[in-house]
Design a protein around this nucleic acid. Structure first.
Lengths: 219, 219
DNA sequence: ACTTATTTTTAGGCCTGCCTAAACTTTAAT
DNA sequence: ATTAAAGTTTAGGCAGGCCTAAAAATAAGT
């Protein structure tokens, strides 16, 4: 089966809206896609006929198994490309969304798999969102970027956004590892650096750049 | 100005057809694009109104200055992506065309420039075609891939497809440099390796991988 | 329960890019 | 020069994806 960019955008948007497996409604989706409710209804019929969603008029809708599979494939591509753009092409993590929105619709199984291998199978994108694997499975750890952790909230380091040897060297030097207990004591708005404290250690300062590659799970 | 994928495909096809700055005609273009003459006429009107080409009904057409600029930008993207796919993702050079056809329509100036820098500003794509620079200039040496050189045909090495230090090390060891006189003595179909001979030296064997990065000009 | 407000769907239209069939130009042949 | 052939354009239509306006279904308020 083959899908248009537009169809894929609908599927992805529905996926993001139905967070907890609940129903999605027409206006909500129209707002998300910046389009009109009537257009949404048109597309819902098409997607239903392609068996990508369960839908009855006036009753709301949700993705079918196949729809979810497609959504995960698109999310996978999106997040792999974001990872590529940030870690290989050196884009800022705030510049990549638009471009990834285009790249995610490139249609080639082997491209995705080769890209994944080239990036060494990253588990999280530069925003800390998990990247689904080829079967659609992903880490479900609800994690946030260190930079977004509230002050004095104890958290556990659970992922790093990159595997580069430079980063790993720095982390080793700072004695930061997966599982470390960490707190943010201050945030400096001038350069977005953070003063952090590891359990049983003295506080020290880390750069914005470093903080952005660290993902934590509040405990 | 903003262009659709379809418009870009027309511009690119016209560019390839009008090799020597001559006129292109409708049927020719229809054949190239696997579409019908009537559809071509429709599009010609649109492209003329966008000032991308010079066109008078029944008289043929050719790209305008702006059209040529756009064509070169698309060719640039296509060939950079092909280079990326072959040299970074390890696709075979015969597998990449389709994918590059999609990637060439991704719209982001900064993406192209960052990709170009990441690849270290390659001058030739994996097929030996020159990659236009950001201003549309490119090497005009008519060159072919070493792998396509006929047996016992003397040629001069005129370009390498990559600047990687690994490649340069190997070339130095083999005493191959720009300007070297070279002949292919045998081709082994099993692994596509070649037996080659440099002027005044003994023949030796090179891998497919190496041969694909070498471009020569028959003399 | 009944009326009003909200949500959703239908109906009909627009634009892009494609198509076929018919009309028109240009070119080639006698 | 006239006619035939080849090439090109117009006319009219279709599908995808969007729109507005109006109708229908559901939800909410009293």
């Amino acid at each position: 089966m083959n899908f248009s960019t537009s169809e894929e955008n609908y599927i992805k948007a529905i996926y993001h809206l139905q967070r907890d497996d609940g129903m999605v409604n027409t206006n909500e989706l129209a707002a998300e896609l910046k389009t009109k409710a009537a257009s949404v209804t048109d597309m819902l019929k098409k997607l239903k006929s392609k068996k990508l969603l369960h839908y009855e008029r006036y009753k709301g809708f949700k993705l079918s198994i196949d729809g979810k599979k497609l959504a995960l494939a698109i999310v996978r591509k999106h997040r792999l490309w974001e990872y590529f753009l940030v870690h290989k092409l050196e884009f800022g993590w705030d510049e990549v969304h638009e471009i990834a929105e285009q790249l995610e619709h490139i249609d080639s199984k082997s491209l995705v798999e080769k890209l994944d291998a080239y990036l060494q199978h990253p588990k999280f994108d530069p925003h800390g969102d998990p990247i689904p694997d080829v079967n659609g499975k992903m880490e479900m750890t609800r994690q946030i970027n260190l930079i977004d952790l509230e002050l004095n909230r104890m958290a556990e380091v659970c992922a790093v956004g990159s595997q580069s040897s430079e980063l790993l060297e720095l982390l080793r030097h700072r004695n930061i590892q997966i599982g470390s207990r960490i707190e943010v004591k201050r945030k400096f708005s001038f350069d977005h650096s953070l003063e952090i404290k590891l359990k049983n250690e003295a506080p020290f300062t880390v750069s914005q750049q470093l903080a952005q590659t660290l993902f934590v799970k509040p405990v």
